[in-house]
Amino acid sequence: MRRSLLILTVLVAGIVSSYAQGITVSPTRLFFTGGPGSSATQTVTITNGGKTPFAFKAALSDWYRDSTGEKVYANAGTLPRSNAGWLKLSETNVTVQPGESKQLNVMMSVPANATNVVTNSMLMLTQIAQQSDEYIKNNNIGIKVLFEFGLHVYYTPENNTKEDLDFTAINHIGKVTIADKVYNRIAVKVKNIGNTTSDSSIDFEITNKSTGEETKLEPVPVSMMPDAEQIVFFDIPEKYKGEFAGVAILRVGSAANVRVGEKNLSL
């Protein structure tokens, strides 16, 4: 019987789990800074803790986050805030033997006419399929899993140090069903009004106005470039009924830099 082969590419962000068969990539984000005309080099280390060689192709891509924070990819050099054209890689094909670590140098040359705008791109390390790669057999179909690592690359002008986010809206948008359970969904919209990239988190809690009972939902991390806006959803289980005071807490960078937004909710 004929056997088919399905190649499945998995995009991995962060330090990779055992699903990547012992491959780790570090760091996962590269931050360059400096003035117009400056240059700098950073090193990415790829380590193979597995038992078979891995080959990767290195390439650059553009990307941005949509309104809900999901990444959207585009060809290198096509987005307004791309810095892909400023980058040069020491090599584009990297083979890492078992037990070996390889270094990939990423060199950035900032144009002399660069403005004071944060720019970004993505360094993609895509596994190259080889004849010797193992595959999973399932109903006579061979599924070959390939891994693609996305490393964020940021350039921040040396004078861009203002980290500031704030709420622009908090709305109760209605009921949603998740895994057969009903929730009241709250949409919290934030904007980066600073001039540098910010790693922050948003907490949301509700207080029953009749009983005073407080309920805290799981915080959500956000990473935003300047001028970006993002909607973060919080889902409140349907069992909470009545009049509530909703409070959103935005922790900008350090825990000491806090913004608070309030919303009366009828659930």
Rank of each mutant, 00 (worst) to 15 (best):
I7A: 11
G14S: 06
V16T: 14
Y19Q: 10
G22A: 03
V25N: 01
S26R: 12
L30I: 04
F32Q: 00
F32N: 01
T33G: 15
P36M: 09
S39V: 04
Q42A: 09
G50R: 02
T52E: 12
P53I: 01
F56A: 04
A59Q: 14
A59G: 10
W63H: 13
W63I: 10
Y64L: 13
R65N: 05
E70N: 15
V72R: 12
Y73L: 13
Y73N: 09
A74Y: 06
A76K: 00
A76R: 01
T78R: 07
T78M: 10
T78P: 11
P80Q: 03
P80T: 02
S82C: 13
G85E: 05
W86A: 03
K88Q: 14
Q97V: 08
Q97I: 09
Q97T: 13
K102G: 02
N105L: 12
M107A: 11
M108A: 08
A112F: 07
A114E: 11
M122P: 00
M122D: 01
L123V: 02
M124Y: 09
Q131N: 08
N139K: 13
N139T: 14
N140V: 12
N140P: 06
V145L: 08
L146P: 04
F149T: 08
L151R: 00
H152F: 12
E158I: 09
N159F: 10
E163T: 15
E163N: 12
D164S: 10
F167M: 04
T168I: 12
A169L: 03
A169D: 11
N171Y: 06
H172E: 08
I173K: 10
V176N: 11
T177K: 15
I178Y: 07
I178L: 15
I178Q: 07
A179F: 08
A179Q: 08
V182K: 13
N184M: 00
V188G: 01
K189L: 11
K189Q: 14
I193A: 07
I193G: 07
G194E: 11
T197K: 09
D199C: 05
D199S: 10
S200Y: 00
S201N: 13
D203P: 03
F204T: 00
E205P: 01
N208I: 02
E213H: 09
E213W: 06
T215G: 07
V222S: 03
V222P: 00
M225A: 12
P226N: 14
P226E: 08
A228E: 14
V232I: 07
K241Y: 15
K241A: 15
G242R: 07
F244D: 03
A248T: 00
V252I: 13
G253P: 03
G253K: 03
G253M: 04
S254N: 15
N257C: 03
N257Y: 12
V258T: 14
E262L: 11
E262M: 10
N264W: 06
